[in-house]
Amino acid sequence: MAFTEDNVKTMDSMIARYPRPRSAIMPLLHYVQSIDGFVTNEGIELVAKKLDLSTAEVTAVSTFYTQYKNKPVGEYHVGVCTNTLCAVMGGDAIFSALKEHLDLENDGVTPDGKVSLEHLECNAACDYAPVVMANWEFYDNQTVQSAIDLVDGARAGNPPAPTRGPDVLPTWKQNSAVLAGLNDGHANEGVQAGAPSLLGLEISKVQG
């Protein structure tokens, strides 16, 4: 997709956040994904031009970080944590169930472009294991069935809400814009904390 003049202005505002332009490369690449869905050649060339870098230098950065994709992902990108703790607690079972259910391999995308699947490393929610992420929103304490419901809902255009996140699951592109630092107005939605986060506090109140 072509980048509009407004897109370029937004990029300029991201560059202006930093004392040195090159620092903006990460938000700019998130932003490219919010428009193109992944890091396109056009995006690389534009970022290189904006930051006065060679295209190779931009490629070097975009291929280092796993959230930057070099090919399209689904409208709903589903990640299953299969790091040790989640894997043991059920993450492995969920991931293989989803692969079978969607008929996908790791990094695959459903033919309708709705859902892509990836196994993840630890996502900092171990007290909610097993954890599944969709467009980098938390789906805590998952089971095989709840994960299947999530991807089925996503394919039908009606995914369930995250357990700790906005009221409605945004698309991959919408959330990429959030990661680029743009405010989508959903910060106040969702719980402030899940039950495990409050456990110690609860106990301390009992302790008195």
Partner: peptide, 22 residues
């Protein structure tokens, strides 16, 4: 001052590379 080759990817897959069109 011709940074047209860079280290790309990471870890065991890290490799020297160019941008495909340059």
């Amino acid at each position: 001052a011709d940074p047209f080759i860079t280290l790309n990817e990471r870890g065991a897959l890290q490799q020297v590379g160019i941008y495909e069109k340059q």
